[in-house]
């Protein structure tokens, strides 16, 4: 029997290392016809802000080679709606429900984090300081070490459960940002958010997205994400959650070997809504094949 449990700090325990990436899995309910949600390690719900946001105008997506661009722009009904309407519906799903907290000011981030702190069945938040799709959006904080320090230390004061900081790949040295998050009190870091990209319809001579630029995700970003996870895992002592293009158990194992303690799956859910449980199963099979007793032993086990 392979032990799949992943122990992150501050009491955040995952049944297995497979979680879902924010913005790609709704509130989990959208996938309950396809998988037993209790068989995954965690669900990162949609980016949630203090106030209702309508998001960006349509068109908001464009398919690109082995991936896609999105410019959803954090459409959500705000934290109060989440607390009153959505939380009661999903709080008893037997997995870790983690809220992805987004904002455009430090006060907003703190207000949302404080409200989530009061929710008994939410063991962690993922601080999204890396959304490329909103104007004064999170990414303004996420691209400088001082920005990260400001927002993470402020949220740390009002939030006492497990605090994940989600990092932007749109920076020169992601390891420096991870170190800043660690120094400011983050319990773990997750990476990567989407890469800033662009697509053009040559026939119409127009950008394909209403916002012109958007966030790239899917299989095409995997090599970059893997490299960044490797760099960050070498730099910090806190656990690293790896994501970006993961579409199979092999992909997931590569991230674990590069230093991730757990992984998230995003865009691949659109192609196969049952991918998460398949990946979890594939990781166990790999461990069996290689005589590995604990999935957690894979973390950083890359031989170089």
């Amino acid at each position: 029997m392979v032990n799949e449990t992943i122990q992150l700090n501050k009491g955040l325990t995952l049944k297995n290392p497979v979680m879902t990436a924010s913005g790609t899995f709704g509130y989990g309910e959208e996938y309950s016809d396809f998988i037993d949600l209790s068989q995954i390690g965690g669900i990162l719900v949609k980016g949630t802000t203090l106030n209702h946001r309508e998001g960006n105008p349509y068109p908001r997506m464009a398919e690109t080679p082995s991936g896609m661009l999105n410019a959803v722009g954090l459409q959500n009904k705000g934290i109060d709606h989440f607390v009153e309407t959505i939380y009661p519906r999903i709080k008893d799903i037997d997995t870790n429900i983690i809220v992805n907290v987004s904002g455009s000011t430090i006060e907003d981030y703190c207000a949302v984090a404080e409200k989530v702190n009061a929710l008994e069945n939410i063991p962690a938040i993922e601080l999204n300081v890396s959304c490329p799709n909103v104007k004064q959006g999170g990414m303004a904080f996420g691209v400088t070490t001082s920005g990260i320090e400001q927002v993470v230390s402020a949220v740390r004061k009002v939030y006492d459960k497990h605090l994940i900081v989600k990092l932007s790949p749109n920076v020169t040295s992601i390891a420096d940002l991870a170190l800043a998050a660690e120094a400011s009190g983050a319990d773990s870091v997750s990476l990567i958010n989407t890469l800033l990209g662009m697509a053009i319809d040559a026939e119409k001579r127009r950008p394909k997205l209403s916002t012109i630029t958007g966030g790239l995700s899917g299989a095409c970003v995997k090599p970059i994400a893997l490299r960044m996870v490797w760099q960050v895992a070498k730099a910090v002592k806190i656990p690293v959650i790896g994501l970006g293009g993961i579409s199979s158990a092999t992909d997931a194992i590569e991230f674990l070997l590069a230093g991730a303690s757990a992984i998230e799956i995003g865009t691949a859910n659109f192609i196969d809504p049952a991918i998460t449980v398949k990946v979890a199963k594939g990781i166990v099979e790999y461990c069996e094949r290689h005589g590995i007793k604990n999935v957690s032993d894979l973390t950083g086990a890359l031989e170089v």
Partner: peptide
């Protein structure tokens, strides 16, 4: 027939602007 990614209501890519918003 808006452009779609997930088709499941999970990604919010396919929105139409209506009297009730997106």
């Amino acid at each position: 027939e808006n452009l779609m990614a997930c088709g499941l209501g999970a990604c919010l890519c396919c929105v139409e602007n209506t009297i009730e918003g997106h």
